[in-house]
């Protein structure tokens, strides 16, 4: 229900009020804030999918917020083991500094995976279960004419939510296109999350809104990920920090909820991916 949060925003009110009281214009400026230096913290990202391996685990350290860099120190020399609940065990190899790869383990829906990391004298541990695969039935796109004058495309992804008795299903939809949502865009959440909490077992239609940079003829790649609850919680809490439509008075931000024990940032997720492409027209 991010749409809700997007509109229930006081700044929106003031944009609307502005014609009435011309002086009511909010203004923004870049300010310098003195942030304390936090000691670097380990970040672990581990992923297993139902595509062919190898799968990667990436270890890095956090940096200073205002440091002018995209470089974050990799963590080398870690010992990483991945196992599944069918007694397969795989010791990962460091292929480049901080990036470790599996060699034998296979991503199979319904399987639980455990990742054990020993790095810098600390043990980290996480478990993730790959949900059953859900396939995209069809995609279609529509030109959007919206308030504020921006136009773009709305892309609709249709699929059938498999009925399950007890648990909810969790999904993430990625949209890939250089023009759709550029990497590291300031409002760039490149995915949408949702659950079948209210739509269990139904035909689902999910909309992705493009920015105004895509044009007729562009190809958009859509990925539908079936993720487990822990991964959903991680991405969901992450999106609260990143979403640009969060109100300036929103509650205190917190680090995303990680499923990795031992105090690392990041996550370990086993998920399925179904990919389809659509050409805008």
């Amino acid at each position: 229900m991010n749409i809700h949060a997007m509109f229930v925003n006081r700044l929106t009110l003031f944009i609307l009020l502005a014609p009435a009281a011309c002086c009511l214009l909010s203004c923004q400026k870049i300010v310098s804030i003195d942030l304390n230096e936090a000691s670097p913290h380990i970040v672990i990202e581990g992923v297993v999918t139902d595509s062919l391996g190898p799968y990667s685990v990436i270890l890095s350290m956090s940096g200073d917020y205002f440091a002018p860099s995209s470089y974050f120190p990799p963590v080398s020399g870690a010992h990483i083991i991945m196992t599944d609940n069918m007694n397969q065990q795989d010791t990962l190899k460091e292929i480049v500094s901080g990036t470790y790869q599996t060699s034998t383990i296979k991503g199979i829906p319904g399987t639980s995976y455990q990742m054990k990391v020993a790095a810098q004298g600390t043990d980290y541990d996480a478990v993730s279960t790959m949900p059953q695969k859900v396939y995209i039935d069809s995609l279609y796109s529509m030109i959007r004419t919206s308030f504020g004058g921006n136009t773009g495309y709305d892309i609709y992804i249709m699929f059938k939510d498999p009925p399950q008795t007890n648990n909810y299903n969790y999904y993430r939809v990625n949209a890939q296109s250089s023009a759709l949502i550029p990497t590291d865009s300031i409002d760039g959440i490149r995915y949408r999350l949702f659950t079948d909490e209210l739509t269990k077992g139904q035909e689902m239609t999910v909309r992705i809104r493009s920015g105004d940079k895509v044009a007729k003829g562009d190809t958009i790649t859509i990925e539908l990920l079936s993720i487990d609850k822990a991964a959903y919680d991680y991405f969901n809490t992450l999106s609260k920090i990143l979403s640009s439509d969060q109100s300036p008075t929103s509650l205190a931000p917190q680090n995303p909820t990680s499923n990795i024990s031992g105090g690392a940032l990041g996550y370990f997720a086993a998920y399925t991916v179904d990919t389809k492409k659509i050409v805008l027209h």
């Binding site: 804030i33 942030l35 304390n36 230096e37 936090a38 670097p40 913290h41 970040v43 990202e45 992923v47 990436i58 890095s60 350290m61 956090s62 940096g63 200073d64 917020y65 995209s70 974050f72 990497t183 590291d184 760039g188 490149r190 995915y191 992450l238 920090i241 990143l242 205190a252 931000p253 917190q254 680090n255 995303p256 940032l265 990041g266």
Partner: peptide, 20 residues
């Protein structure tokens, strides 16, 4: 609450603020 640092999310290719 302000961020005390940030880190890189390699799979999603973006930076994430880190809070203490």
């Amino acid at each position: 609450t302000f961020p005390n640092g940030d880190y890189r999310d390699y799979f999603d290719q973006r930076k994430i603020p880190y809070y203490t």
